[in-house]
Every structure is written in C-alpha cells, then in structure tokens.
Design a protein around this nucleic acid. Structure first.
Length: 594
RNA sequence: GGCCCCGUAGUUCAAUGGAUAGAAUAGAAGUUUCCUAAACUUUAGAUGCAGGUUCGAUUCCUGCCGGGGCUACCA
C-alpha cells in the first residue's frame, strides 16, 4: 500500500536524520488540502522537540531526505509545519495497476477470531417500525463489515416473545376478537396482533379514566384497572404453563413470526441463530449464586440480591428479587454466558438503543467482576432514536412509521421515478421490479446508515425517498454508469491492462480517484473498529462523487492513445469494484444497469 | 436532584487536536452533436455562550444555556 510505504519512508527519515525511532503506525499522514500542491501531508509540529529546529527547517530536512532516498516523492513543499509531498505520476499509475490486478476491495484474510452480533430484538406484540429499521440495518452492516475485516461472524436475534406486553395483545384478542386468523382478516400476522395490542391500550386507558372520574387516585387507577389485572393474571397462567394460555400464546406468536419473516426477507436480512426470551428468561440465577460466593454481590435483609458499583461511579443495582425471581439483569447475565457457551466469541456486539446505555454498562461491569475473560470484548453498539419532523415516535399515540408501509412506499417511489425518467424501456417486468426494490431499499438503508449511529437522527420521509445528492441511488447510479462504460470498452476491445511507464502525466481528477481507492482499507478498518458503518458510507459516496467529476471532465473513449484508454478503463473498473464492495458491506445491492 | 448523550450553513448530515470548518438539499447562475442529465460546473451561506489546556480546539477540560435519555423488586 502506498500510504504505508510513505509512512515507512518517513520513519526512516526520522531515524536517519534525528536518530528517532517512530512506529510506522504512529505516523499520521493526511490527504493534502486542495488549496495546496501535493497529495499527502505530514505534520511536523509534533516532532519539533526531536528535530530541534523550527517547523520550516524540519519540513525541509525531511522533504529533502525523502526526495533523495525514495523514488516516489517527486516534489515537496513546506507551509509552516505542514510537509506536502507530491507523488510521482509513474507511482500513481503503478498503484492503480496493483489495485486493478490485485485482491484489494475484497475481504481481509480471516483473523481466526469470532464475533457475535445481536440485533433486531423485536417484541412479538407489534409489527416492526422505523426504529427497528435503523437497528436492523446497523446490525446487518456491522456484521458484514466485521466479516470483511476478518472475523467469523454469528448474527443472532433475541426475540422478546414473553411478558406482560405479550399478554396484553393475547388478552385483547381473546376478549374483543372474533377468533379471526391473519388470512381471514387479510393482514399480516404481526399487524393483526399489533392491532389488538393497540385495542388493549385503548380499553385500559378508558378504564383508568372511569376510575379517576369516580375519585380514584390516578396512580392507583393504573394499577387497579381490570384490564391490567387480567393481563397479570394471564402472565401468571403462562408461567404456570396453563395449557389454554400457552396454546393461545403459541398461535399468536406463530402469526407474528410469519409476519416478521416476510419483513426480514423484504429487507434482505437473515440471522444465523434465533433466541427466544421464553427460553432464556429463567437463566442467570446460577451466576447470582456464583457472585454471592465470590462476594461480588450481597444480600439485603429481605433476601434481595444486589451488586455495589458505586466505586465505578454507578449505583447499587438489583440482580435478584427478594422472592427469588429474576429481573432483566439476571436474565441478561445468563443469556450472555449462554451465548458465549454456544459460540465462544472474542467479541460480542449488542445493537440496542441508547436508552439502555446504563443497563449495558452495568451488565458488562458485572461480567467483568465475575471474572469472565470475554467481558472486555462485550460492546454495546448504542444508537440514537429516529425522530420524525412531527416529533418523537410513540406507538401508543399512533405516530409510528410502520416498517412494511415504509418499505412499500420506497418501492413505489422508486418505480415512479424510474418510469418518469424512461429508464426501463428495454427491461422486462422481472428486471424492472428487481430494480425498484434495489433502489428503494438502497435509498432507505443508505439514509439510515450514513448518520453516525450514536446520534439521534431526524427521518424526513420526503428526503429519504430523494434520489439525488448524498443518497444510495446516486451511488447505485454511478456503478451502473461505470458498468455501461466497461461493457462498451469490451466491444471496442479495450482492455484494462496497461504499462504504467507509458501512461504519461495524469490529471488531478485521476490522481484524486487513485488516492481515494488506496484509502479503502483504511475506511474499512475504521468502520470495523468503531462499529460505525457511516464511515464506510462516507467513503463510498466520496468515491462515487469523485468518479462523476472525472467522468464529466475526462473523455474516456475520445483518445487515440490505446494506453491512456486502457488506463482509464482500469480506473473505471477498479472504481466499480470498490463501489460494489463498499455498498455490499453496507447491505446495499448495486445494479449493473438502471 | 444525580448520571449519560447531543448542540455546526435556512434544513439534513461530515470533519484520528491540524492549514481558509467539508457535503447534500433549498436559493441564484450555467452545461446535452459525446461513453446513462438520477449527472456536472459556478455562486451565496454555519461551530449555543464564557473561560482554560497548546504551536494550533468543532474536537480535550470547567462553568452556564438549550434538546434528549436513564435514574422501577417493568422488560
């Protein structure tokens, strides 16, 4: 890699000139800003103590050394503490040749490490919504990026399929429903069950209002409304394995799973393993015992078990109720251990919203106290909420954006745009439908992934279906356009093999593009380390943008010189490969034509 | 109250402590004999406030002001 080579050379210069040993990884190199001449910039400010001279002097000494001792630095200039290096045209051409023939833009070699990524985690009482989409796309993209950086990845989904909220929809279905199936109702199973969850809440609210009117304290009313008491009763029956209750639970959950499967298929997402909370909610009590034995936990008079985390700036936290039943934390401790038993990972990523930051901080801290070696590899990929222009999404107030509806809207819009542009005249139905899905899904995924995960973001429906500017379809379009050029080149019998020495001088656009191509690995590494697909998204967008500028200014087929044509085809080819690879790692498909 | 996250052009987003804070969109002005105009080119516009750390701060630290979250023997 060119960048590494330059760093190595700078390290050599520091050693030879100032007898300073610098690790190659510690040397930071950045792209030169457009206003200055050069390709790479080395900042000398941090090294002034070593060079024992002023910034200009230091830059000049290192620049001179590099010019004399390397064959790729053709020129340099120094502005204050910035040493701007210009790489020779021959070297850029050689770099492109390496890229176009080499294995770049593929996955990195396996590193022998395992990582588990848990995401999606839906509740089986309502359909998926916009917030789940951000979660799913983040989890899926992160898994792909980790895979590409060498990990063996296990994608898992822990479904929240039990609890009081599930009983609420079960109860409403029993009380207010006519026993209809999704087929009879003509809607997906998850939507049918979700409908009854809403119904429950309406009735429950009505009951509370009535109680309050009759003079009951509001807080008390919430706890004593008949509906909620019935739901609690039902949960109890479920826990006792009451046959009728379990049968109803299985029937409704079965419908929900069918609905989810359909949505996941539409999103292009699948899991390697599914966990159900109904199977895991009793886990963790043995870890509580272990913690007590090791004096990590302590028991209060009432028998409840706690962990004291005040030395780490947190509170005391309950890990087992006084009556010996589990709480959320108990369950998560047990599940964590179970996951590691199933798949002995070095890292385990939880893709969960940032409202649970504290919970995971506590969980990880407990696992560490319990002496689990893998605890350092536990990571909470915490993401912010998705807001709507109208404000926060609230399922009870009906201000949620349903995932199925949104996906369909994206497909419809893609179809409308494509037809308006007259792009599909020579496509058959199957091909054009596949294209609409690719575009609609690409637009949505890119829109949600381009933002730094940890930040709260605004989802504007109008903007998300925009196909211009910083969007997925813009990148997809660029790939399709390059594919057309490469096809054309084939018919003209122009190959992508060229002799770097014969290419001659390059223009700025060409150099910019090759530079961009050399930084792919960097973007991939950063994305994997930070668990942030937005970094890769930015890389892919910049590449597409650079290519479009290049395409506009540099005629690809209007040149007699065969070598130059071959060089440009190689550049187009490499760019297309990088675009496709980058997009695929984000979970977005790119079309050959559109 | 305590703890955590976020405040950047009109708007939506960028910026390992680096040079004159980048894009996109909306606004203004242009570019089709030519490989796909879902494109390209020009132009105008921003770091909440006050300190501190240093060669240099959007970034790190402190305080304040705004927005959000967590603070259940719920999950």
């Amino acid at each position: 890699m060119l960048e590494t080579e330059i760093k190595r050379a700078i390290s050599g210069a520091l050693k030879s000139l100032f007898d300073h040993s610098a690790q190659v990884d510690d040397i930071s190199l950045q792209p030169t800003r457009k206003e200055f001449e050069g390709n790479y910039t080395f900042v000398t400010f941090p090294y002034l103590k070593i060079t024992k001279s002023n910034p200009e002097q230091s830059g000049k000494m290192i620049g001179d050394w590099l010019s004399e001792n390397t064959d790729f630095v053709s020129r340099y200039n120094v502005v204050k503490g910035f040493l701007n290096l210009t790489i020779s045209h021959l070297r850029w051409a050689m770099t492109l040749q390496e890229i176009s023939e080499g294995k770049n833009f593929g996955a990195m070699p396996a590193n022998g490490k395992k990582v588990m990524v848990e995401f999606s985690s839906p509740n089986t009482n309502k359909p998926l919504h916009l917030g789940h989409l951000r979660n799913n796309f983040l989890g899926d993209a992160t898994s792909r990026i980790l895979w590409a950086s060498g990990y063996e990845v296990m994608k898992v989904n822990l479904v929240n399929d039990r609890g009081i909220h599930i009983c609420k929809s079960m109860l409403a279905y029993q009380k207010y429903g006519s026993g209809e199936t999704p087929e009879q109702a003509g809607i997906k199973g998850d939507h049918l069950v979700g409908k009854y969850y809403v119904k429950f809440d309406q009735e429950y609210k009505r009951e509370i209002e009535e109680l309050v009117k009759s003079g009951v304290d509001p807080e008390k009313a919430k706890k004593e409304a008949p509906s909620i008491l019935e739901a609690q009763e039902m949960l109890k029956k479920w826990e006792e394995q009451d046959q009728g209750t379990v049968a109803l639970w299985e029937k409704l959950n079965g419908w929900v799973y069918e609905g989810f499967d359909q949505t996941y298929a539409t999103m292009g997402i699948h899991f390697d393993n599914m966990y159900q909370e109904s199977q895991t909610y009793l886990l963790g009590k043995d870890l509580v015992d272990e913690g007590l034995k090791k004096n990590i936990f302590f028991k209060k008079e009432d028998g409840s078990v706690w962990v004291d985390l005040t030395d780490e700036g947190m509170d005391e936290k309950l890990v087992l109720r006084g009556d010996g039943t589990a709480v959320y934390m108990t369950q998560d401790m047990g599940t964590c251990e179970m996951k590691h038993d199933d798949f002995p990972f070095e890292k385990s990523v939880y893709v969960v919203g940032n409202e649970q930051d504290y919970h995971f901080k506590v969980l990880f801290s407990i696992m560490k106290k319990l002496g689990r070696e893998y605890s350092d590899g536990l990571y909470h990929l915490s993401y912010g909420m998705v807001d709507l222009p109208s404000g926060k999404m609230k399922s009870r107030e009906g201000t949620v954006v349903d995932a199925d509806d949104l996906l369909q809207e994206m497909f419809d819009t893609a179809e409308k745009h494509t037809i308006e542009l007259g792009k599909i005249e020579d496509m058959d139905n199957e091909e054009s439908n596949a294209l609409y899905k690719m575009l609609g899904l690409g637009a949505l995924k890119y829109f949600l992934l381009k933002v730094d995960p940890k930040k709260r973001m605004l989802f504007n429906p109008q903007e998300s279906i925009e196909f211009q500017g910083h969007t997925g379809p813009f990148i997809q379009y660029t790939h399709a356009r390059i594919s057309a050029i490469v096809r054309r080149a084939k018919t003209l019998e122009i190959t992508s093999s060229f002799d770097p020495a014969k290419v001659g001088s390059l223009n700025q656009r060409e150099i910019d593009l090759i530079y961009r191509l050399t930084t792919y690995e960097h973007a991939l590494n950063e994305s994997a380390e930070d668990y942030s697909p937005s970094i890769l998204a930015q890389y892919v967008y910049d590449l597409a943008k650079d290519y479009n500028g290049f395409y506009q200014e540099v005629p690809i087929f209007k040149e007699d010189n065969k070598h130059i044509l071959s060089f440009r085809i190689a550049l187009s080819n490499s760019t297309a490969r990088a675009l496709k690879m980058g997009m695929n790692l984000l979970g977005i498909d790119v079309p050959e034509r559109m």
